[in-house]
Amino acid sequence: MDTRINLQIISPDGGGNTSPTEMIAKVEQLIRPGPNGETPKYQLLEGNEIWFVIDTDDWGDDIDKLRAYTIERDDMNVAQSNVCFEVWLCFHFSPERQNFNGMHTAQGWKDHLNEVVKPGGFDSQRHPLMIKSAIDAAAENYQEEDDRPLLASTQVFRLGN
């Protein structure tokens, strides 16, 4: 939506482990010279940023390790959703924090999102056009403790900004 922004999504190889510690290892592999001096795949230039977009549901202490890894770096950020990424997606359709039975689980959010977005659920081709209202709604409803989102909150609006 902005030609000045070049967004590259880096997923684990073969749909593998997406834990925060595995994401750190993947980033290190991509931005550091190889063991024999090979040029890294990505060279971080001034103004470049790496964003770790994570859920809260499964990672426990690994989230603290990821935050410790990024805290000293101006070019790395964490955008955490509590419980899961679907919290962010719901803000594309509602200006309010969601409250429903089952909201403490990722599956509850997935089911809820399919109820909120009919027919067919979130459409990754069409619904990102609603990002401005999602940013505003998520920011307005954001609640945290120690820079971590509380239940039904997300930091993904920071990445959107």
Rank of each mutant, 00 (worst) to 15 (best):
G37T: 00
R67D: 10
F52Q: 11
N77A: 10
G37N: 00
L45K: 15
I31Q: 03
E72H: 09
N36G: 01
E72P: 00
I24L: 08
D55Q: 09
T56F: 14
I54P: 08
I63K: 10
K26H: 11
G47K: 03
K26S: 07
V53A: 03
P20E: 05
L44H: 04
P33H: 05
I63C: 10
D75G: 08
W59G: 05
Q43Y: 13
A79Q: 02
V53L: 12
M23Y: 04
E49D: 13
G60W: 06
E46Y: 11
D58Q: 09
E72Q: 09
E22D: 14
K65P: 09
S19W: 02
A68R: 09
W51L: 12
D55G: 06
E28T: 06
P33C: 08
K26T: 14
F52T: 06
Q29P: 00
M23T: 12
D61E: 14
D64I: 10
P35K: 13
I54D: 05
E46H: 09
D62Y: 06
M76K: 07
A25L: 05
P33S: 09
E46R: 15
N82M: 10
R32S: 10
I63N: 09
Y42K: 02
A25T: 11
K65Q: 12
N48K: 08
D58G: 11
W51D: 14
E38P: 00
I31F: 04
K26G: 04
I24V: 07
T21Q: 05
L44C: 04
G47H: 06
I50T: 09
G47M: 02
N82A: 03
G37D: 00
Y42A: 01
E49G: 04
N48S: 13
L44V: 12
K41C: 01
Q29R: 10
T70M: 03
E22F: 12
D61L: 04
G47A: 02
P20G: 05
T21W: 02
P35I: 08
E38G: 01
Q29S: 05
S81H: 15
Q43L: 14
D64T: 14
E22G: 12
K65T: 15
F52E: 08
N36M: 01
P35F: 03
G47T: 02
T21M: 04
I54V: 15
T21D: 13
S81I: 13
K65W: 04
I50S: 09
E22V: 11
S19P: 02
Q80T: 13
E49Y: 11
K41E: 06
V27Y: 12
W59P: 00
D58I: 02
E22S: 15
D55A: 08
M76H: 08
R67V: 06
Q43P: 03
W51A: 09
M76C: 08
D75M: 10
T21I: 09
E49W: 10
K26L: 14
M23K: 15
L45C: 15
D64M: 05
Y42F: 12
I54F: 10
W51V: 13
